[in-house]
Nucleic acid binder design. Structure first.
Lengths: 215, 215
DNA sequence: GGCAAGTTTGCATTGAGTGCAAGTTCGGCC
DNA sequence: GGCCGAACTTGCACTCAATGCAAACTTGCC
């Protein structure tokens, strides 16, 4: 009855579940690489993962969810780390610290790869949009706590949305430049830094007149 | 033959198609109100719209697409109007002008209503996220033209994403306050104005220390 | 060993989405 | 008008996603 969820629960059952989960998403990624996302059926995936079709649905609600799991885990990890940041740290820095945190080259590669598959599958695209959206909602919760009642809902939402937009932009740009073969977590980190810097300054760049007045 | 039917394309076929399309999305909205989005089948919807199931799929790929049509049309209209704005107008103002343009009280009500249904149906939520996303891509295209080569892809993406985030925040906040019964396009307009003002200033509000340095 | 709770699996059912071909309506043309 | 080709609708058939259910199986605990 060790209720120690997640880490450090060597329960056989828990380990088996994790193994199954990993087997399924690994098989999903493999098939998505070979035949494109949406280019195979649940039966094929369940078969490749060594489980029954029914069991697949016990773990994931759809193929897309299985393929997008790396993204989900990345976002979950990033935005749950946000709670651990000092409460008086500027939001922008906290987001940088959590999103741009340590990441292996391989992990970044998978992230970009899955992100790029969006082009070939509307289903997968929607799934990812939903994941980013729920990340934004977590961020809103965090922001509400940090900024307190002084910040209105509108501000919290607009700010959270803008920050997530910056992160997405950084991810997309990193994925683009990694098209050849260059996962590079550092590139993502730099893009993130740059886009958040832009946001910070209200996108007012000296040489560009997209917002000449009011500054 | 031409019975002086107003303008544009008075073709009988075209009119019929529009009528069918409208009948379907009207029926979809009606059923979504009564039984919740996702609370009815395509058969029921086709029946309510007075067409065959197969015909429904000739017009919409899914129930959610039919329900979300008002949002799609709003976004399409808003972002196609963007092309018509003077090229030297500041982006922010152009977005305000197109998004906050003339809108009837009823239209605003429907928009908020559909937006609010998001809570009850993940499918519908994803559909709307996709619509906002494609709106963002149109905005990126527009921005690329306006800002020229001087603006990098990262800036364009982050800026477009932030602007759309502001619009979404304004819409959501308007929908929230309209929960009782108060569609009010003006409220949306004001929220939009406010959130974009925040964006413009880099979310640096005097009394709030969420970003104390670097300004 | 053996019971209880958790997991997997097969089976059956509903319903989404698509291709196809036959029927129906529309537009243009003599 | 009457006819032809194009566009549109519809029924049919088929694949496959997704979920409930109950029987088998595994694991944890005494």
């Amino acid at each position: 009855m060790q209720e120690t969820t997640s880490a450090a629960s060597p329960s056989r059952r828990e380990l088996n579940k994790q193994a199954t989960r990993n087997a399924i998403s690994a098989a999903a990624l493999k098939l998505a690489r070979e035949q494109g996302p949406g280019g195979f059926t649940v039966d094929a995936l369940a078969d490749a993962a060594g489980v029954s079709r029914r069991t697949f649905f016990n773990y994931f609600p759809s193929i897309e969810a299985a393929v997008a799991r790396p993204i989900e885990e990345f976002l979950d990890a990033a935005f749950s780390r946000l709670d651990e940041r000092p409460a008086d740290e500027p939001i922008v820095d906290a987001v940088m610290a959590t999103l741009g945190g340590d990441m292996s080259r391989e992990q970044m590669a998978v992230l970009c790869e899955v992100y790029a598959m969006t082009e070939d599958s509307p289903q997968l695209e929607r799934m990812q949009l939903q994941l980013w959206n729920s990340a934004q909602q977590k961020l809103e919760d965090g922001l509400t706590v940090r900024l307190g009642a002084a910040a209105g809902e509108l501000l919290v939402r607009a700010l959270a949305g803008s920050l997530v937009a910056c992160a997405k932009a950084a991810m997309r740009t990193a994925a683009d430049s990694a098209a050849g073969r260059n996962p590079d977590p550092q590139s993502f980190h730099n893009h993130l830094l740059e886009s958040i810097g832009l946001l910070r300054s209200g996108f007012n760049i000296n040489g560009i007149n997209h917002d000449p007045k009011d500054s």
